[in-house]
Computed example of a mutant assay.
Amino acid sequence: MTQFNFNNELSGKIALVTGGTKGAGKAIAERLIQAGATVIITARNLPEEENPNLNFIPADLSTLKGTQKVVEDILERYGRLDILINNLGSSETPGGGFAVLTDEDWESTLRTNLLAPVRLDRGFLPQMIDQGSGVIIHIASIQGRLPLYDSTLPYAAAKAGLINYSKSLSNEVSPKGIRVLTVSPGWIMTTSAARMMERIAESSKGTVEQATQSVMDALGGIPFGRPAKPEEVAEFVGFLVSPRAGYLTGTEYVIDGGTIPTI
């Protein structure tokens, strides 16, 4: 039976985590460092905290120019990429349903949540195929299955597209040695989410616990009783990119504490 050293199981591997400066992306990057990988992160803004073990490339991945910059910089400096974590995702559209959404709302959301990973995959896959190995993780969302139409309709549609694309891509490149997987988290209690709970509590003159419960109720409830921690998502991603998960590809994994009420 193969024995694995979990502390150094990614030693010698080059990994990129998009949106890696905060939240789940930051936790994933730190988890990959612990496993021995050389980790590059990219985002529009500087990291929340300086970490000398992380290599930062500033870029706006919602643009073709931004994704090309990241691909060229990494291949020029490191010569290859072994692990690609397409974690970047955001929704900045207004609430109010379909009627308030403009073409720009739709296009900007699709560029960030769908086209950015498509472009990065396209940039790194030829080199991965040449070396006969690589792992691509697409961080989607349970909104791909459970959309909140009032506030995040374009985001939910983009993530549904990402899940479908990820499965299709895995069918094409898995025979060439590239594993492609999707991770769909539910609500994650990031630093920004915690601040939002504080604002809700202040405006409603309630407690942070009450604010958190109100959001869980809006999601239809979380049977586990709380949001996920960024480190919990990171730990699972760390497993998926490791040799221990070497037979896994083409699958979507949901991490939502039981939020989705159906099979």
Rank of each mutant, 00 (worst) to 15 (best):
Q3N: 12
F4Y: 15
F6C: 13
L10K: 05
K13H: 09
A15R: 02
T18M: 06
T18A: 02
K22Q: 14
K22Y: 12
G23K: 02
A24E: 06
A27N: 02
A27E: 04
I28Y: 00
L32C: 06
T38S: 13
T63W: 05
Q68R: 13
D82T: 09
L84V: 08
I85D: 05
S90N: 15
T93V: 13
L101S: 01
E104L: 11
E107M: 07
T109E: 02
L110E: 00
T112A: 13
I136K: 03
I139L: 15
Q143I: 09
Q143S: 14
L148G: 02
T152N: 12
L153D: 00
L153N: 00
A160H: 03
I163P: 03
V173W: 03
I178L: 11
I178D: 05
R179G: 05
V180F: 07
S184D: 05
S184Y: 06
M189W: 08
R195I: 12
M196H: 14
A201P: 03
K205W: 10
V208L: 08
A211F: 11
M216P: 04
M216R: 07
E235T: 11
P243C: 06
P243E: 06
A245K: 00
Y247S: 11
G250A: 11
T251H: 08
I255Q: 11
